[in-house]
Amino acid sequence: MSSSAAASSYWRVAGMSYLKYSNLCADMVRAALKEPFKTKAKVREAVYYRTAQWKDGQPVKQVIVDLNPEATALSKK
């Protein structure tokens, strides 16, 4: 099997990485799902992290950064 076909893909030429390409494809497939499955797939997309600033060896203030509030709201339901 030749790798040249994949190496010169149009998305590669346009400066897209494989990771970007595959995630884009996955997003589109998820968008075409039926209802119970669509919500389930959305819930998986929830991403958040907690940061804290440190002062004198103690955490001062904690901030939760939510990268996908929509999905997080769904996962809490």
């Binding site: 998305w11 030429v13 346009a14 897209m16 589109m28 075409a32």
Partner: peptide, 18 residues
């Protein structure tokens, strides 16, 4: 815009396959 064209092209590819 090459990038936008590629993104739309992927959309067409995925949805044609679907």
């Amino acid at each position: 815009d090459d990038y936008e064209i590629a993104a739309a092209q992927i959309g067409v590819e995925v949805y044609s396959a679907l």
